[in-house]
Write a protein that binds this DNA or RNA. Sequence first.
DNA 1: CTCAATTTTCAGGAATTTCTGAAAGTTTGA
DNA 2: TCAAACTTTCAGAAATTCCTGAAAATTGAG
Lengths: 188, 188
Amino acid sequence: MNTTPLVQSFVSHFGEMGSRWGINRTVGQIYALLFVSEKPLNADEIAESLSFSRSNVSMGLKELESWRLVKMQHYPGDRREYFSTPDDVWAIFKTLAEERKKREVEPTLTMLRAAMMEKPGSDAERHAQARMSEMYQLIELVTTWFSDIQHMDVETLQRLMRLGSQVQKVLQFTQSLSKLTGRDSERE
Amino acid sequence: MNTTPLVQSFVSHFGEMGSRWGINRTVGQIYALLFVSEKPLNADEIAESLSFSRSNVSMGLKELESWRLVKMQHYPGDRREYFSTPDDVWAIFKTLAEERKKREVEPTLTMLRAAMMEKPGSDAERHAQARMSEMYQLIELVTTWFSDIQHMDVETLQRLMRLGSQVQKVLQFTQSLSKLTGRDSERE
DNA sequence: CTCAATTTTCAGGAATTTCTGAAAGTTTGA
DNA sequence: TCAAACTTTCAGAAATTCCTGAAAATTGAG
């Protein structure tokens, strides 16, 4: 497996950024290689391309599978496993967002919920709980909204995003409409 | 500095989650402690509360300052520096999002832009470039939208978020309006 | 300016994470 | 059922990151 300089720099970048993104170098590089590869690759090809040990590749692929970021397939007459990334970048983005939410925010929400159930034993605790509650409400609102948005179809999502902050005007408009009709389009 | 069990568990959680969030245990714990503290703390108080060395606290605070997540202040007649987190959780959220964008996505966008300028030397490179371009466009759209949204005032932002995916209906409605009037509210 | 109070730097030890090779485990065609 | 082809596991080596204490630097009151 010869990687061109272009692919090489893309792969290295993902390796270096890996630590900032909470994955390791190996995993980042494997993902990058698969992402730009024309065809699915097997573990030996990956190991050779990136000069990693076969076992390291195996562990990296397992990690990527746990993130649901790679697809595995077989070719008839070939017992080896071939890996690739989904074609649709929006689908990838959604998967990534879901997994990050699960790993990086859910545990915190759980902890905060538990902390808020405790009876405060002092002024300091009362204050701490109030702060945690603020944090909880913010995270809850943002993540719920995010997953709402994520379930919209890509077309709509793109339209919404391209609209940018102009959505504000639309919002103001519907608000004045709802005042006229007396109905409120917001939840609750 | 005696920390109550409630604060203790909040602080520990931030320490443990630290690695998933791309910060280290120390930094996570210092931030958590400051976040729930009733009043600003100086470095010695933090070091004692968390049983870290004074120098470790100094480094942690420096890191938090580089993220713009802590405020420093002085009290008259006291030369020590006192640290706290901003009160407004929305402001904190915005700062965090900006910094993460700067550290975790900008470098990738730069790399992708550079890669896309290269002349492809083979079919493999042409394919790789096409993939990078898809990635670029997605990240560019999402981050631009995110920073657009971020600049909206908190009131509007909250209203938008509470609306959730119902924004879809509003969008559809304005789209049919723009068809009637022949004007398009989208950019470009 | 002096000096004590405070903060920062940094070399190197401690802890953690990553990576490898060898061995064990699994799968499937014959 | 066997054995070759392939994948996974895992102990420990290698690399990296974190943390500390000592020393240097900075700050500001007197």
